[in-house]
């Protein structure tokens, strides 16, 4: 295998690239190499339009369109050359892509894959096929299903009428096929924050037929539609030079990840609709340190947060 580009090369550009076009100066974050690659398979196109979506994803948002076969395969090849450790598919809703199963198969040939989905399109046939693809690979296939609460009353006002029941059907299809999904919960409901909230959530999932529940909690980012729901970041939120602790590039995902969409390469999946966040047209050209001058970076810094599983 050729090694066209590895992270951490001493030849990287010295000047950190800002993650937004805002003139504020943020702290610089080193790049330790491309461990994690996100592919925004369906861009900003989603079959629903959640009120807390930190992008403005929805059925009519084509800001980032679907990635085509060529783009995905070229990206996977570049990722292999860069020694990527783990892959993530997201959107929008990845299961809207007609080639998704093909992309999954190809990715699992070279590394582990997690897919972020609302599970609405996962019927028994799709779930069975996913299990087969998982079994055929030496790497893990993890399906992360978004759910916002343990009742329709909690979830549906955020994700849309009837979605709670449909999400659980999709998740149950996965479980029955042999794939235990990870439920991804945005902590918009205060009772699920902290250790006790988490225990409560898992107990309720057990009662709903998921005997070994797996859950990941995600803080809300005040971007996209969530900014309209709960308010935008205040200017004072932006980080300044000196705010990061030594070694934080190993904690923040953007110290070792990039996100590829049909439009180019971005530092992370959170900022793809933000002004000035596009870094380059190719993966290799996006390597190097970045300057965290977007207010959302403060959420990652304060929460020690990563979108990874």
């Amino acid at each position: 295998m050729s090694r066209k580009a590895t992270g951490g090369s001493p030849t990287e550009p010295a000047k950190p690239r800002p993650v937004s076009s805002h003139k504020h100066r943020g702290p610089a974050l080193d790049f330790i190499g491309l461990d994690v690659l996100w592919l925004q398979i369906t861009g900003t196109v989603c079959n629903i339009a959640c009120r807390h979506c930190f992008i403005t994803c929805g059925p009519k948002n084509f800001n980032h369109p679907f990635m085509d076969r060529d783009q995905v395969l070229t990206t996977l090849e570049a990722a292999k050359d860069s020694g990527v450790k783990e892959y993530y598919f997201t959107g929008g809703e990845p299961f809207m892509h007609p080639d998704l199963l093909f992309f999954i198969e190809r990715t699992l040939e070279q590394g582990p894959l997690s897919i972020l989905t609302n599970a609405l399109l996962i019927d028994t046939i799709t779930a069975g096929r996913l299990f087969e693809l998982s079994q055929a690979s030496e790497y893990s296939l993890d399906i992360r299903v978004s759910l916002d609460g343990t009742t329709a009353e909690e979830n549906d006002p955020i994700r849309g009428k009837g979605t709670f029941q449909e999400i659980l059907v999709g998740a149950a299809n996965l479980l029955r096929a042999g794939l235990n999904p990870v439920f991804t919960v945005t902590t918009v409901h205060a009772q699920y924050e902290g250790g006790d909230g988490r225990t409560l959530f898992m107990e309720e999932l057990r009662q709903r037929g998921f005997p070994r529940p797996r859950v990941k909690f995600i803080p809300p980012f005040h971007l996209g539609r969530e900014a309209q729901r709960s308010g935008e970041y205040e200017e004072s939120f932006r980080l300044s030079p000196g705010d990061l602790f030594p070694g934080e590039e190993e904690v923040l995902q953007c110290g070792s990840c990039r996100t590829v969409t049909a439009n180019g390469v971005y530092p992370c999946p959170i900022l793809i609709e933000e002004d000035g966040a596009r870094m380059a047209g190719s993966l290799e050209a996006s390597f190097g340190s970045i300057e965290l001058n977007h207010p959302a970076c403060a959420t990652c810094h304060v929460e020690g947060f990563s979108c990874r599983t």
Binding site: T6, K85, E138
Partner: peptide
């Protein structure tokens, strides 16, 4: 882990 450590990553490491 065995199932989340890709071979290309091992080579890079």
């Amino acid at each position: 882990w065995e199932t989340t450590t890709s071979e290309p990553f091992i080579e890079r490491l």
